[in-house]
Design a protein around this nucleic acid. Sequence first.
RNA 1: GGCGGCGUACCCAAGUGGUUAAGGGAGAGGUCUGCAAAACCUCGAUGCAGCGGUUCGAAUCCGCUCGCCGCCUCCA
Length: 472
Amino acid sequence: MSLRFHNTLSGRLEEFVPLVSGKVGVYVCGVTVYDRSHIGHARALVTFDVLYRYLKFSGYEVTFVRNFTDVDDKIIARAQQAGISTADLVETNIRSFAEDVKAMGCESPTVEPRATENVDGMIALIQELIDKGLAYPADGDVYFAVDKFRDYGKLSKRKLDDMIAGSRVEVDERKHHPMDFALWKASKPGEPWWESPWGQGRPGWHIECSVMSTKHLGQPFDIHGGGTDLIFPHHENEIAQSEGAKGKAFARYWLHNGMVNIGAEKMSKSLGNFMTVQQAAGRVGGEAVRLFVIGTHYRSPLDFSPDRLDESGRALTRLYETLARVDEALKGEAEAGPAPAVLEEFRTAMDDDLNTARAVGIVFETVRTMNRLLDEGKVDEVGVLRSALKEISSVLGIGGTEAVAFLERSKQDHLADAEIDPAEIENLISQRNAARREKNFKRADEIRDQLKALGIVLEDTPKGTIWKIEKR
RNA sequence: GGCGGCGUACCCAAGUGGUUAAGGGAGAGGUCUGCAAAACCUCGAUGCAGCGGUUCGAAUCCGCUCGCCGCCUCCA
């Protein structure tokens, strides 16, 4: 089966055929860096990270561009509120963004351009639009004339008339049409500004993506991604700007991830009902956040709750405990072999519009199979499954860490949180084993209960007693 | 009002015309164990919001009804 994506432009599933055979250009709208990222951003980041990895896995040479929008109204407002420069605010947030992305195991895009580094290109594009009669200056601002662009609304499937009738549109007598949007804004005192043919000002919201995408990928390019909430007006306006100016197609496949809901309501900064990536990763680890995200198909709504996040943490621990068991049994022996059927199933799932939920199911089916084979002593049959799982992990980004190290780290995190000394645990285990040798099971169980109260569970294995962190 | 989408077991979630409806979490029973834990095995929706229709056959297609959500304003 060939790779297929749901294209927002056509509203249906389409076979993916890149512009240039073997190469793919992907542009994804990154974040506006005015605050920390939350689970909603995490979803977009992880979704398109998986897309990037799967395209590479499928043999494509991929150029992946994800931008930072580092100049806009909110950034200016936040900086003023905090009494710092916009540049400082931006740097702080880009740093924390980098931490979040790293925690979730996302690969670095090929390029991460910033809006403020591309203002010249934006001015040039705006001038082109003015020259073509698609934009007009007004009091130091420049607006795009939506009714001059015939295809306006083709992505979001809206008609200009419907939009005006249905929503409150701010009256602005400088605009020729109520839906006209700003390409350039005259700067007020104290705001960042650039020189332009229309005076000192700064770019509007949508123009930076038109410029940065085509700068690195050309026009047209293959895939443009982002959240569904960007379809209108952001992506619609990108199309208007780029296709209006150049008279040719902008992006060929539009992929949009669904929203994260919390209590059946969209998670968002404005509603204040968000959990930051940092909080979530601190609770269960970034990789579990990632598993939480890919457990649902990217276009479906995803309901967030702390309990569901914890479930993902438990599932991930189960995966790693099996991997640790497998690696111990294989002892680093060669595990190459013919690509087993699971890998084909994985490809089929991913080719079908990135069905990561199904792919995760395949991972856990494999986990169970490997456990069973180990119980039956069929170690050699486990090898090929283990190597298949490694390949799958490299795409999904879960289970890719060295298993023992992962488990050890989550232990250490817990001990640090609970302020427990590992030596104390070992000491109690010794006391308990002494009691057990004397058949003093009452005393032995008391010690076990004592540890359990601290979130430590014991397992008596053939090789002795080991301890683990109780699953939350 | 316009556009788009959703409703599958206790919770989450794949499956979108054809053998026994993936997988995860929680739960029950069993094997193992001093007892546990972990792991494994077994059990769990005769049914996929409801009602009609198309079809040899539908969770899957069509129609209607009910419930829910997103976008239309900054937003991943």
